[in-house]
Amino acid sequence: MPNDYVAANMRNWDERVADHLVAYGAEAFADDPAALTARVEAELLAPFVPGGSFEGVTMLHQQCHIGLDTISFARRGADIVGTDLSGAAIAAARALAARAGTPNATFLQSANEDVPDAVGRRFDVVFTSVGVLVWLSDLDAWAQSIARLLAPGGVFLVYDGHPMMAAMEDGRDDGLLVVGEPYFATGEPRRFDDGATYASENRMENGVTYQWPHDLSEILTAVRGAGLSIEAFGEHRSIPWKALPGLVPGDDGWVPPEGSPDLPLMFSLIARGPGRGETRG
Rank of each mutant, 00 (worst) to 15 (best):
G175T: 04
L60M: 07
G120F: 01
A28W: 09
A226I: 04
G67Y: 00
P163C: 07
P189W: 01
M168G: 00
G131P: 05
W212T: 01
W135F: 11
Q62I: 12
N104W: 00
A222N: 06
A88Q: 12
H20K: 13
V49A: 05
R276I: 14
M266I: 01
Q211R: 14
A91F: 10
D4C: 05
N202E: 11
T186I: 06
I239K: 02
P189K: 04
R11T: 09
L228M: 11
T197Y: 11
E27Q: 15
M59R: 00
F267N: 02
R237Q: 07
F107I: 01
M10E: 15
G82R: 01
L85R: 05
H61M: 00
I80W: 00
L96G: 06
H236E: 12
G131A: 02
Q109C: 08
G67L: 03
I90W: 04
Y198T: 12
E278W: 10
R237G: 14
T83P: 01
G227P: 03
W135D: 04
R121Y: 10
A196G: 11
L150G: 04
A167G: 02
A232C: 03
L177F: 08
D252Q: 14
G153C: 04
A199Y: 12
R148L: 14
D84Y: 07
V6S: 11
A34V: 06
F184T: 12
A26H: 09
R121Q: 12
N104Q: 14
I270C: 04
G120M: 02
E169N: 15
D194G: 14
V255G: 00
R76W: 02
G67F: 00
R94Q: 14
A38T: 03
T186Q: 05
A167L: 02
P152N: 04
A111D: 11
P103N: 03
E235Y: 06
Q144K: 14
I80K: 01
D252L: 11
G82A: 06
R224Q: 15
P213L: 08
D117V: 07
F29N: 08
V179F: 15
R276D: 15
W13L: 15
M266Q: 13
A46R: 10
A111I: 10
H20V: 03
A151P: 07
L176F: 12
E188R: 15
G246E: 01
D117Q: 14
I146N: 03
E181Q: 13
P240T: 03
I146Y: 00
G82I: 00
S200M: 09
K242R: 15
L220E: 05
P257G: 13
A167E: 04
L263G: 01
A105C: 08
G82N: 02
N12Q: 15
W142Q: 05
E218C: 11
F156C: 02
Y5F: 15
E113K: 13
L45F: 07
G131I: 06
W254F: 02
D69M: 03
T197P: 09
T83V: 12
Y183K: 01
